[in-house]
Design a protein around this nucleic acid. Sequence first.
DNA 1: GCCCGGGTGTAACAGTGTTACAGAAGGCTT
DNA 2: AAGCCTTCTGTAACACTGTTACACCCGGGC
Lengths: 229, 229
Amino acid sequence: MTQEAVKPVRPVRPARPVRSPAVSRRAVLDAATRLVEEQGVAGLSMRKLAAELGVAVTSIYWHVGNREALLDELVQEMVHGLETLAAAGSGPVARVLSLATGLRRVLRGHPHLIGLVNERGLTPAMFLPSQRALAAEVAAAGLGGTRAAEAVRAVQYHVIGFVLVERHTDRSPEQHPTAEELWLAEPAADTVLAGAFATPVDSDRLFTVSTEALVRSLLEGPFPAFELT
Amino acid sequence: MTQEAVKPVRPVRPARPVRSPAVSRRAVLDAATRLVEEQGVAGLSMRKLAAELGVAVTSIYWHVGNREALLDELVQEMVHGLETLAAAGSGPVARVLSLATGLRRVLRGHPHLIGLVNERGLTPAMFLPSQRALAAEVAAAGLGGTRAAEAVRAVQYHVIGFVLVERHTDRSPEQHPTAEELWLAEPAADTVLAGAFATPVDSDRLFTVSTEALVRSLLEGPFPAFELT
DNA sequence: GCCCGGGTGTAACAGTGTTACAGAAGGCTT
DNA sequence: AAGCCTTCTGTAACACTGTTACACCCGGGC
């Protein structure tokens, strides 16, 4: 009963390849990664994948079990790529900032997968390595206990949220009126301000400014360091 | 050529109802809203919608034209619901904070649509009303020009990003290890810190803390007010 | 020889969005 | 009154999706 295994939907390990297989699990994952990066998650269909590899659909299912499982695997691989993040610079604020920008850089490298990670509730696992690094820096800044945990989480939410937002605003075909056009259309009281809003968003700068503001306030904020519990 | 209109895929305005229609555009939109709120965006299928209304699929298409157009319409209606946001409280920080929490409240009221808005690149249009309100408060705080625009956008990105993140972490069935479990599993150096991380996230508090930190830093930050350009 | 089991293929099922086409039914013009 | 035109609905299909029941091939162990 414990190991019925009438139909091994997914091989735990291929043991030895008795026959030279037409595709390998690795090849399926690689092709899937390529497809996702080219056409997005919605562009990944099992039949397209099979055709790409010159193989029947069922082979794909044999190797990865499922579309969902396939995506899970892709996500896992990306999460493992997040474990090599280290702070740099001098001073807590600068070091936390370097972690944040590093996070954003990696996340933007996988624009299609980051949404999947979030949808699967894998965000905590994904951020654990960087969470430890962040926690170390925050502790070095003199924070501890609840305050420290809040600061770390605040930075995490800010970074992933920022990337989630800009992931779409990047490639929006500017359907419907842009904020810039809207500001120009209606005569505003403050023309200087309207002009500032009429310029498109500089994501990099906006990220730096907002993150630095957040981090600085969290670390050197109005709450004195001796208030820890 | 300008108005071929061989097949009016979508009626600009129903003029007069020549015959008592089996469904109205309004009814379709309402049923769609209900379906989306119950089963999420993926749960909205044209056939389900038609069955729900006791009508053939083509009628749906006649009234709303498209699934994409239908979703566009739902999004539009939500966006219009965002136009009644006003700042409250005294002091720029408190007033901006009230706007931010108001935004979050409204967004959380439409958890399924907020992702759509972002995917459609409608975020700018969606945030225009609150953007004006935010701009007014930021200006009252003494900021202007580029600095003001950056501050406003930083708050916007922070709020929508936060909601995007918590939208999923809310209803994640805690598959895979939770961050809390991960922190408890591995023996950490700082047990107090680990304990703090082992407690689940209090979204409301985290939002308040992080947003206040961000806003305070943006408005009263290290950049003096006379540095405007 | 036989069989077992890993790996592949054919063909189907149910579901999706979308549309070509045929109608029905009221208001309008002739 | 006859006819047409617009509005609206229904039937049936197309192409596509994820998934699976089933047959098949083929190398290794007995």
